[in-house]
Simulated scan of single mutants.
Amino acid sequence: MSAFFDLFEKPEGPGAGVAPAVALTIAGSDSGGGAGIQADLKTFAACGVFGTSVLTLLTAQNTVGVTAVEMVSETMVRAQLDAVLGDLKPTAAKTGALGSEAMIGCVVEYLEDHPMERLVVDPVMISKHGEPLMPPSAFKALREKLLRHALIVTPNRFEAGHLTGMSEVESVQDMKEAAKRLHGAGAKNVVIKGGHFERIVRDVFYDGSGFVEFGADRVDSKRVHGSGCTFSAAICARLAKGDALVDAVAFAREFISEAIEKAPKVGEGISPVNPMHGVWR
């Protein structure tokens, strides 16, 4: 276990340690522990960052599927935000599953009063099992209200298609076009994930002036539950620690590849990735 604790600054005397960077996730709970808040907090910890959380919705789910979703009240979401921001002062934040147009409006309203410079928006729309985590009516609110607050938005190709109105995002050129459209919708930076071309997985990053393409060997695995959450949380963690954005994305790209490769078999359905791959396997 020492490798994990080595990620944090060592105290020089009783209570004299340098506090770790603090990151915040605003997302839903996965009772199966593979995605959502649970994946984000594991990733923050693995990256040597102190994780804080604001729950937007609860899911009853496991590796097989989602059986129930219940929204947290907007009053409670604001109370959680007040509690975290009023004391722990996260230097970067991310959003995950927000669940409804009303919840998106609640979070956007809060961001307008309390701007977050390093905000990662992971536009979670559907679970790995295929169950919707956001009604189609909320897509427009996410695109038109939330994206303008994002330092970076991290959709997969499916999410990019829905957010941009493109019927297909099937090639690198399609990914670049979708990235341009999302930048035009207000996101300062965009990374579109998961273009599988032969044996290579490609991610496309766009900052409004040019593209960076990230490539990695494809890992043949069905243990991918929580991969999007883990990827965006790794970006958030590195931003909290002060990394430049492109460096944070490059780190997250390598981190998620290893998290997939070293994921154990858990449950009878789609097993989750392993954000704690540096601690146990």
Rank of each mutant, 00 (worst) to 15 (best):
E74C: 07
V49R: 04
P275E: 03
N274P: 14
F4H: 11
V169C: 05
T164S: 13
V191L: 05
R253E: 11
K94V: 10
D87M: 09
L142S: 00
A160N: 06
W280G: 05
K145L: 11
R238W: 06
V201L: 12
G96E: 02
V249E: 06
S137I: 10
I270R: 02
A83V: 02
A185W: 00
V72Y: 08
E12D: 12
E70N: 15
L182W: 00
A187I: 01
A27C: 07
T25F: 11
I37H: 14
A46Q: 07
T52S: 12
G161R: 07
G278H: 03
P264L: 10
F211C: 07
G28H: 04
L119N: 13
K262G: 01
G210A: 14
A3D: 09
G96L: 14
F4P: 00
I200Y: 05
A3K: 04
G51M: 10
G184P: 00
V120S: 06
R218A: 09
K176S: 07
P14A: 13
P132W: 08
V77Y: 06
S171I: 15
I26T: 00
D82I: 02
G226K: 06
T230R: 01
V54C: 03
F5G: 07
G105A: 09
P155D: 09
G34M: 09
V224L: 13
A19D: 05
G36L: 07
V77L: 11
G32D: 01
G242D: 10
S2E: 04
E198R: 12
G210Q: 06
L133H: 09
P275W: 11
M134E: 01
G17N: 10
M276H: 04
Y110V: 02
T56F: 13
S29N: 14
R78W: 11
G48Q: 02
R199I: 01
A240F: 04
M1K: 09
E170C: 12
Q38S: 08
K176T: 10
V108K: 00
A150L: 05
V124R: 08
A179I: 14
N189C: 15
A252G: 07
R238N: 11
